[in-house]
């Protein structure tokens, strides 16, 4: 047994000749591990400290991750959290994210192996945001905040090392995307005019975590409009594009991340979160005939298939697929995060 109570096996440990950061960097590179960036050495002391924040046996399996079928034990996840540079108090969030990735709704095998550029976006909600120092304000997508950066990176390292989502053998993403390094934000509840996003789903928890597997954020800005319709028309124009998977897969979700000022404009007009979704559902549309010209295969809901070429088709088959929350700081930029298509977001208490 090692100090963590887990069984030691020679394959669990490597010898490092010294503590020079370049040494582990080169050692991991020689094994084909890592994300290409420098790493923190996962010494037993650091891994033990990480594990002290959960009540579980180090060798207990949280979930098994495809495509490699690696066992995401608490130990393995802790090692990757150390490598990513996480503070040990972040570890429970990383664990809950790994658990959520095991949810069948995520379809992680598809997410990890598809040619499409898709990465799990982690969204932290509630009191954990302030307690752990996540950035929900200016620059929430990064860079510069340790919690956002390292929790997102820990998940990517788990996907690389445990799930085997390595470009080539385990990840066929044609071009990849920058959010495959790290992808973690926080809901800006302090500046949101609406109830917390998890509560809108019926989840009443002090803290929660959402995972949405999507593309990089697609920005839309409006610095001048004083009515929300004019602002959201720009968001709708970003959504109404043939280039995303959601264009030909009608079951896909859209996350609309509104900046506080855009959300306030909506709220000042008496708009709810649902009003924003409804508006985008109605406005982000293109003629059915245009879709048919662009695609040989359309994975549409049955009711959409029966539409005539002239009728307008929404960018998703039901309004509930358009999710709205507030994040970011001052300045009037919001964004849209389209999904991969064959995946559903998951929100869990933490």
């Amino acid at each position: 047994m090692n100090d963590n109570g887990g069984m030691e096996s020679s394959s669990q440990f490597l010898e490092l000749s010294d503590e020079d950061p370049a040494t582990i960097y080169e050692l991991f590179e020689s094994h084909g591990w890592g994300d290409g960036l420098p790493l923190v050495a996962p010494t037993d002391e650091r891994v033990t400290e990480m594990l002290s924040h959960v009540k579980a046996s180090p060798e207990e399996v949280i979930t098994v991750l495809p495509p490699r079928g690696g066992s995401a034990t608490y130990r393995a996840v802790a090692v990757n959290a150390v490598l990513a540079g996480c503070k040990s108090e972040y570890f429970p969030i990383v664990v809950e994210a790994v658990k959520a990735l095991g949810n069948q709704k995520i379809n992680l095998r598809g997410v990890n192996t598809t040619t499409h550029p898709v990465a799990p976006l982690l969204i932290v909600h509630g009191s954990a945001v302030e307690e752990l120092g996540f950035n929900s304000g200016l620059g929430t997508f990064g860079p510069g905040n340790r919690a956002n950066a390292t929790v997102g990176r820990a998940i990517r390292l788990v996907l690389l090392h445990v799930a085997g989502a390595v470009p080539g053998p385990g990840d066929a993403a044609t071009q990849g995307q920058p959010s495959k390094y790290t992808y973690c934000i926080a809901e800006n509840q302090k500046e949101s005019p609406w109830e917390p996003y998890p509560m809108s789903l019926g989840l009443n928890s002090e803290s929660a975590l959402t995972i949405h597997c999507g593309e990089n954020p697609h920005n839309f800005h409006d610095m001048e409009s004083e009515n929300i319709e004019r602002i959201l028309d720009k968001g709708a124009s970003v959504m109404a594009t043939f280039g995303v998977n959601n264009a030909c897969i009608s079951g896909g979700e859209w996350f609309i991340i509104l900046c506080p000022e855009h959300a306030l404009t909506a709220s000042n007009q008496g708009w709810s979160r649902e009003d924003v979704s409804n508006y985008l559902f109605e406005k982000a549309r293109m003629p059915a005939g245009s879709f048919r010209e662009q695609f040989n295969l359309l994975a549409w809901a049955d009711w959409m298939k029966s539409l005539s070429d002239e009728e307008l088709v929404p960018m998703t088959q039901k309004v509930e697929n358009i999710k709205v929350l507030v994040s970011g700081g001052a300045g009037k930029h919001s964004c849209v995060v389209p999904s991969w298509g064959m995946t559903r977001s998951v929100t869990v208490p933490i």
């Binding site: 394959s11 669990q12 490092l16 996962p42 010494t43 393995a76």
Partner: peptide
Amino acid sequence: MNMKIHTPEGELMD
């Protein structure tokens, strides 16, 4: 000074 570090890969199922 030599040091031991943990490997990052989870075990494969038996």
